[in-house]
Design a protein around this nucleic acid. Structure first.
Lengths: 125, 125
DNA sequence: CCATTGTATTCCCGTAAGGGAATATGTCAA
DNA sequence: TTGACATATTCCCTTACGGGAATACAATGG
């Protein structure tokens, strides 16, 4: 089981700088033709088309077919899992650092260093 | 310029399921030896070691040297950029959808479909 | 119908990266 | 010091993936 392909896993899809840039552009100026992105990002046209293909398959971007010049739309809901996952560690970089460390240690002691389940109970799996 | 290596770009580092799982475990039960993760995740020991190496290099994880049995710690601040980036699109999956679409269209009209800068002004670049 | 334009696709190549097995390293115990 | 244990590293192999060039495809305008 290798890495989940970019066209399936959102985390993997946005692991590419240019794709993140594309999403940013689309989010900034809503519906946009591929050609605009080509000019804007200064990338070769096939590259943009491929990246858009990945983003489309993974659901980060939706395409509105308009004849010769299809227009791309951000589907940001797909990015929510990323946000939620990272947000799950918010308390770790915030001020409540000590609080959660205490909790963690309490749990650790309670279980005597041998977890019974193979899944973290905290969630955000 | 290919994809930024996993040991440099956080987005790419967490694009791997197992690494996310490792981070989750560490966040759940604070300091933890590599061996515990091996048992917990059911992965071969070298795999866990390698993944921890990546996470360490990218800064998502810190290691506390303890002789034979070094202990790993989550360094969640490194994940904040991911959170922030995704959060930048929060308004797109929320209720303010129409609001931002209006704004975007206004800008689009104001600039007559030809962006002058090569960077999105919205930020989160 | 044909030419033009914009976009998607294909082919080939190079490389990063993960898996598995074996091995090295390093630490603690006796 | 030697042996046992835990972790890190190396080697080889396979594959996903991005780049570049060329091409195919679709739609529109003449």
């Amino acid at each position: 089981m290798l890495r989940v392909p970019t066209t399936v896993d959102v985390f993997n899809a946005i692991a590419e700088r240019r794709r993140r840039a594309i999403v940013e552009w689309l989010a900034w100026q809503e519906p946009m033709a591929a050609g605009v992105l080509v000019v804007a990002l200064g990338l070769p046209q096939p590259a943009v088309s491929k990246h858009l293909g990945v983003l489309r398959k993974v659901g980060v971007v939706a395409v509105i077919e308009q004849g010769n010049c299809p227009v791309y739309n951000p589907e940001a809901e797909t990015l929510k899992p990323v946000h939620d996952w990272a947000k799950g560690f918010e308390e770790l970089w915030g001020h409540q650092l000590d609080r959660i460390k205490e909790r963690a240690e309490q749990r650790a002691h309670a279980e005597t260093e041998s977890p019974t389940s193979l899944e973290p109970r905290k969630g955000q799996a």
